[in-house]
């Protein structure tokens, strides 16, 4: 249970980063932290105490193993996260080139 609570705290840390930080890179880091908390949560769903990894072996029939489906989901989510973050960082670099700063308060061409 405490692990779920820690996950939630991590989620909130990420959300704090997104909402309160003014630096583009720090906002992206906040989003990354948030993503990892969700991934931890997914792993925890499939976790069973004192179980083995879901690899088929000789003692497979008796062994209690953790749910492999959330792990597959997490791998897919990591791939998606990679694509999102690569795109986000390249946009951040472009924005730095345009404005000469990473501060979002200086970027205000869009209003209304």
């Amino acid at each position: 249970m405490i692990l779920f609570f820690l996950c939630f705290i991590l989620f909130m840390v990420g959300l704090y980063g997104i909402i309160m930080q003014r630096n583009l890179i720090k906002i992206i880091i906040g989003l990354a932290i948030m993503e990892y908390s969700v991934l931890f949560f997914l792993i925890l769903i499939g976790y069973i105490d004192s179980a083995t990894a879901p690899i088929i072996s000789e003692s497979f029939e008796e062994a209690l193993f953790v749910d492999p489906l959330p792990q597959a989901m997490v791998l897919t989510a990591i791939v998606i996260g990679l694509a999102t973050k690569a795109l986000m960082l390249s946009v951040a670099i472009r924005l730095y080139k345009e404005y000469g700063t990473f501060d979002i308060r200086k970027m205000n061409t869009l209003k209304g």
């Binding site: 997104i18 993503e35 769903i45 959330p70 989901m73 989510a77 795109l87 345009e98 970027m107 869009l110």
Partner: peptide, 24 residues
């Protein structure tokens, strides 16, 4: 466009994570 896309990405990213939590 860059500014709009950054805003869109952050909000879209947060929404995706909320959806993923819901799916979990």
């Amino acid at each position: 466009q860059l500014e709009a896309t950054f805003k869109y990405q952050i909000l879209g990213g947060v929404s995706s994570l909320i959806i993923l939590t819901g799916i979990g």
